[in-house]
Write a protein that binds this DNA or RNA. Structure first.
Length: 276
DNA sequence: ATACCGACCTGTCAGC
DNA sequence: TGCTGACAGGTCGGTA
């Protein structure tokens, strides 16, 4: 089981990084040669970030947003933000400078406390970028959307409900694990057409999605320090998930074997008895 | 416009 | 034992 940063994990990381480094100044930066995956060129990030104060670190969707105050304020940079997306394998570490830099480190912020914020990402699906207009994400926040708005997201969508849940332009923050888990808890098959959910079903899905995300955030809280300071999440997910990666194992509700199919190109896990 | 699919990238693991 | 290939998936860009 690998760590796959979705909303709860990103929330956990963002809170942990905020608690450790907010208020610090960025005294310098380093970015790896492999700058191709970066949305903003490394030289541009270097120039913009150096001298900034980190006011806050927070989550928007699956993005980690650093709210910055530049040293020499210009109108252009008043709302400067630094965005980090962890992709599949990205980690943010707060380390003392004498701690060896891990393999696959692609970005470092040198902080006024003498520590460093390090972005480590073996697979390089992660991204770093500057943003200047107030980043609000690509879609709606799953934890804030009302049940009525939630239902309206899927109106006219020919695609499956699972694909719709994963579509970051509709909701942002939901990934493969929480899509499967919330559909199981709502009793809805992943291949159901999004536009065909009944009012009751979309209400159940809204409730179960929020419940599972909140529950995972609560569990993630205890993993914050481990995650940020050291190696990574040691699979606190398995304790909670009921279908994800449980192919062939008995459903925890009815006992029938959990099935695995491909939906929207993703491994998708569900119970054929409990989900209709 | 919406929807779908392959590419990106490398660590892990099953199977020989 | 050691190697090979399939697999994992968030997002983006190309195509239907």
């Amino acid at each position: 089981m690998r760590d796959m940063p979705e909303l709860p994990e990103v929330e956990t990381v963002a809170r942990g990084v905020h608690d450790r480094i907010h208020g610090e100044m960025i005294q310098g930066t380093w970015f790896s040669e492999k700058s191709e995956p970066f949305k903003t060129p490394a030289s541009e990030m270097e120039t913009a970030l150096t001298g900034c104060r980190i006011d806050a670190v927070r989550r928007v969707g699956k993005h980690i947003v650093f709210d910055l105050t530049p040293s020499a304020k210009t109108a252009e940079d008043v709302d400067l933000q630094w965005l980090v997306h962890l992709g599949m394998t990205g980690r943010l570490l707060v380390s003392d400078v004498d701690v060896p830099v891990p393999a696959h480190t692609h970005g470092i912020l040198q902080l006024s406390s003498g520590r460093e914020l390090r972005f480590v990402d073996a697979r390089r699906f992660g991204r770093m970028a500057l943003h200047r207009q107030g980043f609000s994400g690509t879609g709606r926040e799953p934890l804030e959307i009302t049940v009525k708005e939630f239902r309206e997201l899927f109106r006219g969508r020919k695609t499956s409900i699972k694909a719709a849940l994963l579509n970051q332009k509709l909701l942002h923050g939901v990934g493969n694990i929480y899509a499967d888990e919330s559909l199981f808890r709502a009793g809805i098959r992943p291949r159901r057409a999004a536009s065909r959910l009944t009012v009751k079903e979309s209400a159940r899905l809204h409730a179960s999605l929020q419940a599972v995300l909140k529950s995972a955030i609560a569990l993630g809280g205890s993993s914050v320090s481990d995650y940020v300071d050291a190696a990574g999440v040691r699979g606190f997910f398995q304790l909670k998930h009921r279908v994800y990666m449980r192919t062939g194992q008995p459903c925890l509700v009815c006992g029938s074997p959990i099935r695995r199919i491909l939906v929207a190109g993703r491994g998708t896990h569900y119970c054929n008895q409990c989900q209709r």
